[in-house]
């Protein structure tokens, strides 16, 4: 099943106008979400959860939502209140109380493999907070390049294209991060980021 290429879930599929017909009664959950902290940000639903987050629209949001969904599916289920974002809209903090600054070894080894794979699938353009030598934050994912970077745009385009094909969507092939070639690639990107 394919959908139109869209940057992220929220805002897509605006209600088509039906002339002369009454508007539906339900409130839009996206509108009920907390207001963005900066006018540049937009509220996005995290698919598969009942969570909305304020992110910088465009490639940054696409990449961070990708990371959030993979965390939700492959590491630990996320619930409302589990995601925080800052004013920049390019940093995503997962359960800061759970993975606070300075705390290490909050993830099991197999979960760490998934984290490495998320970073690798984002070509290293996404930084994992656990890699910070000064003050690790194991629940943090951060865009590692300027939001307008052309590599980031290319990455977002690829993630969107994958979303059109059921077999390549987030949530399909959850065992793939553990296959030898993916683990190798993740390791090489980790070394690259460290060096």
């Amino acid at each position: 099943m394919r959908r139109r290429t869209l940057l992220a879930s929220a805002g897509a599929g605006a209600v088509l106008a039906v002339p002369g017909l009454p508007a539906p009664a339900q409130a839009d959950p996206a509108q009920a979400a907390p207001a963005a902290t900066s006018p540049a940000l937009r509220t996005f639903a995290v698919q598969g959860t009942d969570i909305s987050v304020a992110l910088l629209p465009g490639p940054a949001a696409t990449v961070l939502l990708y990371a959030a969904r993979r965390f939700h599916y492959e590491i630990d289920a996320l619930h409302p209140g589990d995601l925080l974002t800052g004013a920049s809209g390019i940093v995503l903090d997962i359960r800061p109380g759970w993975y606070p600054a300075g705390a290490r070894d909050g993830l099991l080894p197999y979960q760490l493999i998934v984290v490495r794979d998320i970073v690798a699938q984002c070509d290293g353009l996404l930084r994992w907070g656990g890699d910070s030598a000064r003050e690790p934050r194991e629940g943090r994912f951060e865009i590692a390049v300027p939001p307008a970077d052309r590599r980031l745009r290319a990455l977002a385009k690829r993630l969107d294209a994958d979303a059109e094909i059921p077999g390549r969507r987030v949530g399909a092939g959850t065992a793939l991060p553990f296959t030898p070639d993916r683990v190798r690639r993740a390791e090489s990107i980790r070394r690259g980021a460290a060096g």
């Binding site: 959908r3 879930s9 929220a10 897509a12 599929g13 605006a14 639903a45």
Partner: peptide, 8 residues
């Protein structure tokens, strides 16, 4: 058509 987010 779209059908890819709750808001639709």
């Amino acid at each position: 058509t779209y059908a890819d987010s709750a808001s639709y």
